[in-house]
């Protein structure tokens, strides 16, 4: 039940970011689905593993879906990927880092900062990994026209 509500929140939140980035309304559903699926992957992996692994897995799924769907829908990959990646931003970790550094608890601030850095590093690595796949894997096959 909790996961279902969270996925719904990720779906709605992704579409809201789509509106902020002026994504065409015909792509809202795709953006929302990618955001929701990304969150499901993140939550399921997080339950069995660490935050860094979960961020990496979710990023790979999101960017892979974005690349495939971008070809299908004939839009640039950024249109689907950028809103879709927002749900896995390590927000609470960032907040804790800032807060602890501010109140002078440097030790916890730095250790939380490193955890955040790991999560962000995993996201960066995920994006780079999927974009190093060759372009032709994603290209549509040209239609074969019957000749007489």
């Amino acid at each position: 039940m909790g996961l279902l509500l969270e996925t719904a929140a990720a779906f709605v939140g992704t579409i809201a970011f789509g509106i902020l980035f002026v994504v065409p309304s015909s792509q809202f559903l795709v953006c929302g689905l990618v955001g929701g699926i990304g969150w499901v992957v993140y939550a399921v992996t997080l339950a069995n593993s660490s935050a860094a692994v979960a961020s990496f897995m979710a990023t790979v799924v999101i960017v892979l879906l974005a690349r495939i769907l971008a070809v299908v829908r004939k839009v640039p990959t950024n249109v689907i990927m950028i809103p879709g990646i927002f749900p896995i931003v390590p927000g609470i970790g960032l907040y804790d880092m800032i807060y602890n550094l501010m109140i002078g608890d440097t030790a916890s601030g730095v250790s939380q900062g490193l955890a955040v850095l790991k999560a962000i590093g995993a996201i960066v690595f995920g994006i780079i990994a999927v974009f190093s796949l060759p372009n032709r894997w994603f290209r549509k096959r040209p239609k074969i026209v019957a000749r007489r």
Partner: peptide, 10 residues
């Protein structure tokens, strides 16, 4: 709406 739903995710 974005702020509200992300607050739930956090």
């Amino acid at each position: 709406v974005g702020a509200g739903s992300f607050c739930y995710l956090f």
